[in-house]
Simulated assay, not measured.
Amino acid sequence: MTNKVMVSKKQYGINTETMALLPFYDEYGKVHTKVLERDRTLCVCGKPKAVVTFSCGYYGSSYKGRKDGASLIMGIRSRAPIVISEQLGIFFYTS
């Protein structure tokens, strides 16, 4: 059963329950992130990139380091998948 109630958070760490990060604008035109998990939906203050950056730091690296590493290994500069946590098998793909 999925909990459709929005839970507001100031920071969020991507984890094994995270399915998607979706940007949305509030009534004042400010970008926030809708986080879809397996069993709930959360609203996080800040852009999706801020959530990814925070999560990279939480798991011991920087967003820039993860992005540069992915570009070097795969040989592509844009839209390379970002490793959030290698140990947990969490990767971030952009569309």
Rank of each mutant, 00 (worst) to 15 (best):
M1K: 07
T2C: 10
N3R: 07
K4Q: 02
V5L: 08
V7M: 08
V7I: 08
V7G: 07
S8Y: 13
K9A: 03
Q11P: 00
I14A: 05
N15K: 01
T16D: 00
E17F: 09
E17M: 11
T18M: 07
M19A: 11
M19I: 09
M19C: 12
A20L: 06
L21F: 05
L22R: 12
F24I: 07
Y25W: 02
Y25K: 11
Y25F: 02
D26V: 00
D26N: 14
D26T: 04
D26I: 00
D26L: 01
E27D: 13
E27F: 08
E27S: 13
G29T: 06
T33Q: 04
V35Q: 02
L36T: 13
L36V: 13
R38M: 15
D39H: 12
T41W: 07
T41V: 12
C43Y: 01
V44C: 05
K47F: 00
P48V: 09
K49P: 00
A50Q: 05
V51G: 07
V51I: 08
V52Q: 09
V52F: 14
C56K: 03
Y58P: 00
Y58G: 01
Y59Q: 02
Y59P: 03
G60S: 03
G60N: 02
G60E: 02
G60H: 02
S61H: 14
S61N: 05
S62F: 12
Y63G: 06
K64H: 07
G65I: 10
K67Y: 15
D68A: 10
D68W: 11
G69V: 11
G69I: 12
S71E: 14
L72Y: 15
G75D: 14
I76M: 04
I76N: 06
R77T: 10
S78K: 06
R79E: 06
P81Q: 11
P81R: 10
P81N: 09
P81D: 11
I82D: 01
I82H: 04
I82Q: 06
V83P: 03
S85A: 12
E86I: 02
E86D: 09
G89D: 08
F92C: 15
S95N: 11
